[in-house]
Amino acid sequence: MSVDAKTVRRIGNLARIKIEENDLENYADELNVILGFVEQLNEVDVDGVEPMTSVTPMALRRRQDKVDAGGYADKIVANAPLSEDNFFMVPKVVE
């Protein structure tokens, strides 16, 4: 499988990365080198093999469903490029 400029534009949109029109072909070439490299996985017989979900045998720990932290909205927004009254500020989303 390989990607073309149109696919690169679509992936860029999904990944929310703006890709300049004159860079689409370069990007396609670079991605195709990597996709060509991973192609060899098709040689492997994976019939009946379970896909890995955890690298160490462990059950996900659970905790009580209760609040044990919080009350520091000022810290949460402290690094925001733009915030007001402990809210993140973004361009208008709803008309």
Partner: peptide
Amino acid sequence: RAQKVRTL
């Protein structure tokens, strides 16, 4: 497929 190979 990659996660299956990882199991192997």
